[in-house]
Amino acid sequence: MLPQFDYIRPGSLDEAVARGAGDGAVLHSGGTDLLGCLRDGVFTADTVVAIGHLAELRGIEETRDGGLRIGALSTLSEIAAHPLIAERYTVLSLGAGSAASPQLRNQGTIGGNICQRPRCWYFRGDFHCLRKGGSMCYAVAGANQYHCIFGGDRCYIVHPSDTAPALVALGARARIIGPSGTRVVPLESFFVLPAQNVRRETILEPGELVAEVLLPPPGVGLRSTYRKVRARGAWDFALAGAAAALTFSDGRVNGGRLVLSGVAPIPWRAAEAERVLIDNPLDAETIRRAVEACVADARPMPHNGYKVDLVRGVVAETLRSLA
């Protein structure tokens, strides 16, 4: 049985924001992460504020600039099955379709997927770790085979989302609504590294919620894809993955992004590899150099050195599939 909490279903988005800003309040839409965290005592909640019924947060539609608006309550199943997303933003369709299990995709929302808490077993387990306000990261001297090889600093979580890397690769933005108004933030600036703040994964302030995700118009010559490697063939989180959204002109890469999943506390933009790709044809030599650029600054832990090779392999496969 879940621990007790008050339940509020606000009558409006404004009320949801006001209630969500209250002490001990958490927002609830799909619930696939929240209910597990409450059940396991990862954190507590005095009040669960439901937002799953708010029509303003629903819908997937084209925007006037030729982009796409995805309401935060869109489920991963809806996104994976959406024909326009599959055609124009393939990387996002694949990311959403490879996350979790069919049941969880029917339930989990894109807003929740980018705001989910980390899956580190110390964080989820009975350990008062740094991220929960404790004094140490148990992964440093512990079982760290599933932890990060990039961006770790005191805490070594990996970001669990498969849609977040796709959104960063596509240059998506999040419209955030909160007690002090609305702001629109590039997804790339949405996630927080442990060095910035070890207690939170996103820039959301109390009461703020992601209302929608905004995709820019697909660039001319855009090709995109997502690949992920997992420990088991059926559903699982990524051990390592690569989301690529590259634009091509005259047979050469002329823009775009390469973002790694499962290897860093945030969706990890492989900026050095992107520089290698730009102005080059996507041939074997370019891919080889891009792969090495991806792992040049990897800092594996005692038990996760295999992830360096996984990144090499998954990036090479991903890029080859776009050539």
Binding site: T32, V48, Q103, L104, Q107
Partner: peptide
Amino acid sequence: CSRGECGACTVLIDEQARYACMTLAVE
């Protein structure tokens, strides 16, 4: 499992397969 991993509690909600252990009754 009580944590949305095993599928033993799968039901259809509005025709879609979901985990009943991860769905609040009030919702």
